[in-house]
Design a protein around this nucleic acid. Structure first.
Length: 286
DNA sequence: CCCGGAACCTGAAGGC
DNA sequence: TGCCTTCAGGTTCCGG
C-alpha cells in the first residue's frame, strides 16, 4: 500500500519520463476515479496540456500542467501508475489489473492508473494550483524543517495511541501503517502508548527513526507487500528490510521474541513485545 | 476538538 | 469443487 516512500519512488522514476510531455488523449474508463471536476470539464482541461512538473506532498502525486492547474492523484490502497512505452492497454499490463484512467502522451507512451480496489482518486485543482486537500496535511517528515520539537508538540496534544497519531495525515504527511510500525520498533515505543505519554527521549528517537525508516525505504524503491509496483512494473525491495511490519510470528531481529500483532483503529499493528514494552523503557530496537 | 469505529472497495485466503 | 465469510488499510464520515 503506497505510503510516502512508494509515492516518492513513483515520483522519482516517473518525472524524467513525463515532465515536458504533452497529454494528447485521456481515457477515463472508470468515471468513479474522478473526484472533481466533472468528466467533461476534466477532459477539456487536461487534453493538450503539457506536464510541467511532478511533485509529491504526503501520499499525493501532483502533476503540474502548463495551464497552471494541477492534476492530483491519490493511490490509496492498491493504486499504481504504470508508464507503458506505447499504446494504451500495453502488453505487460496484467489482464486482471484494472485500468481506471489512461493518459496518452505525445511520444506515444501511456500513463495508466491501475487500481484493483478502486479506492484511489483523481482531482484537478484550480489554476492557482492550490487545493483544499493539501491544506489538511501536516508536515513533511523528511523536510529539514521537521524537528523533534515539532513531533513532541504534536504528540503532546493527543491522548490516542501513538501509532494512530503517527498515521494521522494532519500530523505527519505520508506515514502510514507499515512505516509507523517500523519507526515505533526502531524507537522502542509500544504502539498503544498514549501519544502524550511518550517520554521525551523516546520522542527524539521516534523523530529520528521515522526519518531513517522512510529514507531507507526510498533507497529501496518502496515496499511491494501487496500490489505496489514502480512505473515500469517492477517491485520495490523495502519490504525485505522490514523488522516487524507484516512479520507476525517471526523472531524479532533484535531479541528473537516472536513479533505480535494487535488491532489499533481497525488496522493491524505489528511490534516486538520485548523491545517495545508498554511502559517507558528503552527497548533494544537499534 | 478529540477519539474510535464503520464505510468504501475487491481479490485473496480460509472454513466447511 | 464451490460457496460463504473474513481480511487488508488510506481516507472520510459519523456518533459519543
Amino acid at each position: 500500500m503506497p505510503e510516502l516512500p512508494e509515492v516518492e519512488t513513483i515520483r522519482n522514476e516517473l518525472a524524467p519520463l513525463v515532465v515536458g510531455r504533452s497529454i494528447v488523449g485521456v481515457t477515463l474508463s472508470d468515471p468513479t476515479a474522478l473526484a472533481s471536476p466533472d468528466q467533461q470539464e476534466f477532459m477539456a482541461r487536461v487534453v493538450g496540456k503539457r506536464v510541467r512538473s511532478l511533485r509529491r506532498r504526503g501520499k499525493y502525486l501532483l502533476f503540474g500542467l502548463s495551464s497552471g492547474r494541477v492534476l492530483i492523484v491519490h493511490l490509496r490502497m492498491t493504486g499504481s501508475l504504470l508508464l507503458v512505452p506505447s499504446g494504451f492497454p500495453g502488453p505487460h499490463v496484467r489482464q486482471n489489473t484494472r485500468v481506471r484512467l489512461a493518459l496518452k502522451l505525445d511520444d506515444g507512451s501511456g500513463l495508466l492508473f491501475i487500481d484493483r480496489r478502486r479506492l484511489g482518486r483523481v482531482w484537478l485543482a484550480d489554476v492557482n494550483g492550490k487545493h483544499e486537500l493539501m491544506a489538511r496535511l501536516g508536515m513533511e517528515p523528511l523536510d529539514p524543517a521537521f524537528t523533534p520539537d515539532d513531533l513532541s508538540e504534536a504528540l503532546s496534544r493527543r491522548r490516542a495511541p501513538v501509532k494512530a497519531v503517527l498515521c494521522d495525515q494532519k500530523v505527519i504527511a505520508g506515514v502510514g501503517n507499515m512505516y509507523a510500525d517500523e519507526a515505533l520498533f526502531e524507537a522502542g515505543v509500544h504502539p498503544l502508548t498514549a501519544a502524550c505519554e511518550v517520554p521525551p527521549e523516546a520522542v527524539k528517537r521516534l523523530h529520528r527513526s521515522i526519518r531513517r525508516v522512510l529514507r531507507a525505504a526510498i533507497s529501496n524503491r518502496g515496499a511491494s507487500v501487496d500490489t505496489y509496483l514502480r512505473p515500469d512494473g517492477s517491485p520495490g525491495q523495502a519490504h525485505s528490510e522490514f523488522r516487524v511490519a507484516h512479520r507476525l510470528g517471526e523472531p524479532c531481529p533484535a531479541c528473537g521474541t516472536e513479533v505480535e500483532r494487535i488491532m489499533i483503529r481497525n488496522r493491524g499493528a505489528y511490534f516486538c513485545p520485548r523491545c517495545q514494552p508498554r511502559k517507558g523503557g528503552r527497548g533494544s530496537g537499534v
